[in-house]
């Protein structure tokens, strides 16, 4: 048995449907979705497909803060948001939003990070240890006394993550965390997230449009559309499915170039090639016209 198969399932969802209060139709429609411990799962799809709603259910915000009709089986590390409170789930599942400014509020980085543990009623010593640990994980010790709003977008997103990590979650859910980051910060962020996952043995669920930034780190890709899961499989399988069926998502250009040239370059992983290899392949496409 491979390690993938022997891993524990920590999220199990069966026939999940949800309709926001006063809405006409379901935003999520009979979803089945499992996540195993240590996986790095990317969820993508057009706006309005139900991605953020799913994240809200996995963090207990639905139905605790957003009322509506929720049905189906939900087990998030054996929690069910209909039976458990947000703070119970928050100690296991952390949520990072698109715009860190919506998540940060304290006057110093340190205070922002301490806020969650303080609200758990932990002892001072434990709070202090957690803050130190979170600061070191995201490498923000130098910025600890600064106001979060003085920091660049990339650093702000790290503060938001540190604040979530201080709750010592097992699962980290991120909802389009790179939307407001410049390209360099976004690239660094992708590597940082992968390192974080390995070091802390986290399970990551990432909602994202920029598939190519994270592609090489992913265990699976899930594509959603109109409240349903279109496909949920290994990255290569999902990309091929989306190209074949003309699903409008951001397929990495590398893959499109290789596919255009046919079978010749199969068998090698997408990121084993350097940009110069792709340049040669791309010039072949130009010359073929």
């Amino acid at each position: 048995m491979s390690t993938e198969e022997s891993r524990k399932t920590i999220i199990r969802i069966r026939n999940l449907s949800f309709k926001y209060k006063n809405a006409e139709k379901n935003v999520l429609d009979t979803i089945n979705f499992d996540v195993k411990e240590g996986e790095f799962v990317l969820i993508t799809g057009p706006s309005g497909s139900g991605k953020s709603t799913l994240a809200r259910i996995l963090t207990g915000l639905i139905p605790n803060s957003y009322p509506g009709d929720l049905s189906g089986e939900i087990s998030i590390m054996s929690f069910d948001p209909r039976r458990n409170k947000i703070y119970e789930i928050a100690q296991n599942v952390g949520l990072v939003l698109q715009n860190p400014e919506n998540q940060l509020f304290a006057l110093t980085v340190e205070d922002d990070i301490a806020f969650g543990p303080e609200n758990l009623g932990l002892e001072r010593k434990e709070i202090k240890e957690r803050v130190e640990w979170s600061l070191s994980v995201v490498d923000l010790q130098k910025e600890r006394h600064k106001a979060p709003f003085e920091l660049s977008g990339g650093l702000q997103q790290k503060v938001a993550i540190a604040a979530v990590l201080a709750m010592k979650p097992k699962i980290l859910i991120l909802d389009e965390p790179t939307s407001y980051l410049d390209t360099l910060s976004a690239i660094k962020f992708a590597y940082f997230l992968n390192e974080l996952k390995r070091e802390l043995n986290l399970t990551i669920i990432l909602i994202e449009q920029k598939i190519d930034l994270f592609f090489k780190f992913l265990s699976r890709i899930v594509v959603m559309n109109e409240g349903k899961i279109l496909i949920d499989d290994e990255p290569d399988v999902v990309m091929n499915f989306c190209i074949r069926n003309k699903i409008p998502i951001n397929i990495p250009l590398q893959l499109l170039i290789i596919r255009t040239l046919g079978e010749t370059y199969d068998g090698k992983k997408l990121y084993d090639y350097q940009v110069d290899d792709y340049k040669m392949l791309f010039e072949k496409i130009i010359n073929d016209r």
């Binding site: 410049d182 390209t183 190519d212 250009l253 940009v275 110069d276 340049k279 791309f282 010039e283």
Partner: peptide, 18 residues
């Protein structure tokens, strides 16, 4: 100051080298 994406670095190489 700026970073290339895969696409922009590809374009950059194709137009300047070829």
């Amino acid at each position: 100051i700026l970073a290339h994406t895969f696409t922009s670095s590809l374009i950059s190489r194709v137009i300047s080298q070829s």
